[in-house]
């Protein structure tokens, strides 16, 4: 793996490299270089499978972090490529020409996070939410409790506890 990294570093600008497990590595790439990096990995280093494409909302840093998880079936190595993109103008280049199933992941991200992938087929058709009108629900500034109470006619009589407080009182009653 280290050899591959050395070779990659000569071509691409890679920021971080860490090994999570014996067969699981993560690198952080630049947004502009991502498609060429994935093409390079797929065609030259045999990372032929895209396992998933997911996003994390770092609202404090005003960032979305996308993770492209690829797998090499010859060496049984998984390599995750992380890309940080701006949260306000969330837009990323599509990779559906590399892996066809990426378009489903991208549709999901468009719907649940509001990250646009211009050119991806069917990107605007609904994935699970049909006719969603609010801000995308997986963004951290979306208040699910408020939304649920406003929309779904909550049945009266539900009691809600703060889990930390509740367990503290239950496990260590003498402290109160």
């Amino acid at each position: 793996m280290n050899e591959i990294m050395e070779q990659l570093k000569q071509i691409f600008k890679l920021n971080e490299f860490n090994q999570e497990r014996e067969d699981l590595y993560f690198i952080t790439a630049e947004k502009e270089q991502l498609v060429s990096l994935l093409t390079h990995l797929r065609d030259i280093h045999q990372f032929t499978s895209l396992i998933f494409l997911q996003a994390v909302d770092y609202i404090e840093d005003n960032l979305f972090q996308l993770t492209y998880m690829t797998h090499n079936y010859d060496k049984h190595i998984s390599l995750g490529i992380r890309v940080k993109i701006d949260r306000q103008a969330a837009e990323m280049s599509s990779i559906h020409h590399l892996w066809e199933h990426a378009e489903t992941f991208q549709r999901e991200l468009k719907e649940l996070f509001g990250i646009d992938f211009p050119g991806s087929p069917g990107i605007d058709s609904g994935f699970v939410l049909e006719g969603w009108e609010d801000i995308p629900p997986m963004r951290k500034d979306f208040d699910t409790v408020k939304y649920a109470e406003k929309t779904f006619f909550p049945r009266p009589g539900r009691k809600t506890h703060d889990p930390a407080e509740y367990m503290k009182n239950k496990l260590y009653p003498e402290n109160n």
């Binding site: 699910t144 649920a148 779904f152 006619f153 909550p154 049945r155």
Partner: peptide, 19 residues
């Protein structure tokens, strides 16, 4: 189906079917 159960505060789970 009665009151949303453990998903009561989800953005996508209907709380009361009888509505």
């Amino acid at each position: 189906t009665i009151n949303g159960g453990m998903y009561w505060d989800s953005y996508n789970t209907v709380n009361r079917i009888d509505y």
